[in-house]
Amino acid sequence: MMLKIENLHASIDGTPILKGIDLEVKQGEIHAVMGPNGSGKSTLAQVLAGHQAYEVTEGSVVFEGNDLLELAPEERAREGIFLAFQYPVEIPGVNSAYFLRNGLNEVRKHRGLEQMDAIDFLSLIREKLELVEMDESFLKRSVNEGFSGGEKKRHEILQLAVLEPKLAIMDETDSGLDIDALRIVANGVTKLHTPEKSVILVTHYQRLLNYIVPDVVHVLMDGRIVKTGGKELALELEERGYDFVREEVAA
């Protein structure tokens, strides 16, 4: 088992958001976590990445045998967890190349690999840029500053490609994308997915799942996973909305 979440409770400023999540992700699996707005999807993603604004009040998260909740965000990243942000943060004055190489070298150091110098990095990054159909000029720009919505999301996929995490958590990666950007982003995720790597797709809509086919679909409502099924569950949600699940839960 790569990731095992048990009875996870988390709150922000004293308000409970996650109220007992149970979720298991095996190596190589793609899981979709769906749910209406405010159900706690993004909170789950942020808690897994280690955002300090959220307090874990109960439960456990084990990643490859280690207690994930004991680790600082950077230690989780070095262990191989990657969060693609719903709203990537603008970092004025830090160019993308510096940002990507710094992150990569932190991960490599942790894995006992040599630091990558600027020249080796450039040949690596050129290959990765192609994957997300981005131009080399991006590398000189400040991280996310002045990027369009689509560019920000492609930049997240670029980071995913460079850091090669074991578990990628994609938080609403499809939101705000036009159809071309969605195709590029989905294509990137699909190509980077190997039998050793797992993915959690957090999404409100089914459309991303036309491109990235999940093994398991979970429905999150009011801080709990209320329904789990195969990829057909996503289609059913698309057709019938979340109300039918709500009714099932009530019954």
Partner: peptide, 9 residues
């Protein structure tokens, strides 16, 4: 936090 999630302390 963003930088931390990319491996920086």
């Amino acid at each position: 936090f963003y930088l931390q999630t990319r491996g920086l302390s």
